[in-house]
């Protein structure tokens, strides 16, 4: 006996994501889901962003890692509220984890909430967390073939940050190829080239953030 369903498999995650989205809309919070490989500079970028914008904006961070609360400690030291989710092996965050984590910070007081997903260019992109927008970070030392190798992740990004741009002259990184490959899967993505270490290019990223908050 066959039963036809056509039912969404991740419906429970989607229900939770939509609760998160309602919460962000109700409190006029811009929420960004930050996805990259391990070591692309997600935490460094957030630390720099918080340091430069904390006078003007209330920023909260939900950190996702397999183990340790190292990243949340760095965010707290930079002057923002943070809550660390330890996934104990899971390679991505779920909407339910984010829902619970939002209760651990003064979320409703924030203008901007970053969700720093587990470092991984594959799995996080399959799970909606209720974020307003997705930010994918690609760092120059990872190589210029990443948008072609992980098209799904880049296709879902509103913004792509090409980080560690200060290293480009020392490495064989074909920027034109990266820009073309991102354009192929996602012609609407905003792309910023920057360095969280030197500060190069950060102003354009901040302008984009402010635009999101004002609109």
């Amino acid at each position: 006996m066959k039963v036809s369903l056509g039912q969404k498999i991740l419906s429970r995650n989607e229900e939770c994501a939509s609760q998160n989205r309602d919460f962000f809309n109700k409190h006029k919070i811009v929420c960004l889901n930050v996805i990259s490989s391990p070591g692309a500079g997600k935490t460094s970028l957030l630390v720099r962003t918080i340091t430069d914008l904390r006078e003007r904006l209330q920023i909260g961070v939900i950190e996702g890692d397999i183990e340790t609360d190292n990243d949340a400690q760095k965010i707290l030291a930079a002057g923002a509220q943070a809550f660390q989710i330890q996934t104990k092996g899971a390679c991505h965050l779920s909407a339910e984890q984010v829902y619970n984590a939002l209760k651990m910070i003064d979320a409703e007081k924030m203008n901007l909430i970053f969700i720093e997903n587990v470092g991984n260019l594959v799995c996080p992109s399959a799970f909606d967390l209720g974020e307003g927008r997705r930010v994918v970070i690609l760092s120059v030392p990872e190589g210029d073939d990443k948008p072609a190798k992980y098209p799904g992740t880049f296709a879902g990004a509103s913004v792509v940050l090409i980080n560690k741009i200060d290293l480009i002259e020392h490495l064989d990184f074909n920027l034109q190829r990266v820009l073309a490959d991102i354009h192929t899967v996602n012609p609407n993505a905003k792309i910023f080239q920057l360095s969280a270490k030197t500060g190069q290019g950060m102003e354009a990223w901040y302008d984009w953030l402010k635009e999101q908050i004002e609109t």
Binding site: V3, S4, G6, Q7, K8, I9, P187
Partner: peptide
Amino acid sequence: QIQPDAPLLLEEIEFEE
């Protein structure tokens, strides 16, 4: 322009009679 990717669906289950 890429069209939306197909969602993850449970299409059908077959049960013992």
